[in-house]
Design a protein around this nucleic acid. Structure first.
Lengths: 210, 210
DNA sequence: CAGACTAGTGGCACTCAGTGCCGAAAGTAT
DNA sequence: ATACTTTCGGCACTGAGTGCCACTAGTCTG
């Protein structure tokens, strides 16, 4: 029977968690820089073997992301639960905002993490693979709403456009101390709604200063 | 005096060119796959030393790109030469189309190259760094037209959005044999002009089937 | 022509990320 | 105790990328 609450599954218990390793790595990256930190350093700091670390994360580049898959699943669920009376663009905009809402105590941590992800070249490059998964969630939802294939041009463009707006907001957020990520996201997403029809873009006040 | 046309500059002549190496590498990548091709293989095939190859290209990932910097300079020049009566969005749309126009004999080659760049994970990731340079050209132009800083939110979003539309067109192009890249780009860029105002996207026929 | 100068070449040794293999360790189930 | 299951981590290996340095192939000057 499986009635033990302390060690519910068979075999040896894991020594640590993805979250703990991500945290240790992030600390070292901030202290000495990403390139100056070796995987050995991280493993040693976490008190595990180097080989073991590679079982928790497939690459050094994945360490700052923590458990991104779980976050993505959250966004997918949020979209799935959105009422169909809400327009496609609004539904996506709300989901994006929701996806990027964090408890206030985690905000400084998240800021440092994004600072790395958007500035260290190796991480910038690797991030693309994560963004692709994110875009797929967006495109998939859009395709369902529009009644077209997920690889049709409209859902694809929508995926890219929402990603671009989000990252633009993030870049803005990291650039200015004390700015509010959620407000910046709403500004950027509003730009999409206002559209590019006129050729002259509407001037939107950055949320942080509105 | 410097009047010799064969060897105009001092010192030893280069054994090869970036373009030649890019071509050799691309052939090998197509034959056996990107991951199955080592830098040694490429250097040997090109008849140079491995160490020398790394002087022509900073990384294996850069080989498929050839001389991207020159292409970027062309786009920048095209934008700079665009009449100011043309709206911002139209100017960018024309520049993007121009940037992606190739002589018909190079099209199959370019297609294979983009096939690699958009499908091999390592290349997908690395491409981000090249795209960032591309986006900067777009954002920079937009910032000038809008009279705002290049790191303001509007030019940033515009950079992302045009990149997204371009890549969506490319993905579409690679997916369907015999499709026309230029037409697909125009379709995707039209989506941007039509905008997201209504919440319901206009249905645009893919250029390849129009 | 000799010697100085300059720029490309490539071998060697090194660091570091990532992987396959496999036995040891630490648990649970019977 | 024994069997089974899962994690751990050492070891050896591949392959990308780098610093160093001697060598090569040119030009330029006297």
């Amino acid at each position: 029977m499986n009635e033990c609450s302390v060690a519910p599954r068979m075999g040896r218990q894991p020594l640590t968690t993805r979250a703990a390793l991500s945290h240790v790595a992030l600390r070292l990256f901030l202290e000495r820089g990403f390139d100056q930190t070796t995987v050995d350093d991280i493993a040693t700091a976490a008190g595990i073997g180097r080989r073991t670390l590679f079982r928790y994360f497939p690459s050094k580049n994945d360490l700052p992301w923590g458990d991104f898959d779980a976050e993505l699943a959250r966004m997918r669920a949020f979209l799935a639960a959105t009422d169909t009376t809400v327009s496609l663009v609004d539904a996506l905009a709300r989901a994006v905002v929701e996806f990027n809402r964090f408890p206030s105590e985690e905000v400084p941590f998240h800021r440092e993490r994004m600072n790395l992800l958007l500035n260290v070249p190796a991480l910038v490059a690797h991030s693309t693979l994560r963004y692709a998964e994110w875009r797929f969630v967006v495109s998939d939802f859009a395709a369902g709403r529009l009644g077209v294939a997920v690889d049709a041009i409209e859902p694809t463009v929508i995926g890219w456009v929402f990603l671009g707006a989000s990252l633009a907001a993030y870049e803005q957020w990291l650039r200015t101390d004390g700015s509010n990520l959620i407000e910046l996201l709403e500004s950027a997403l509003l730009l999409l709604k206002e559209g590019f029809t006129s050729g002259e873009l509407p001037t939107v006040e950055p949320g942080g200063r509105a």
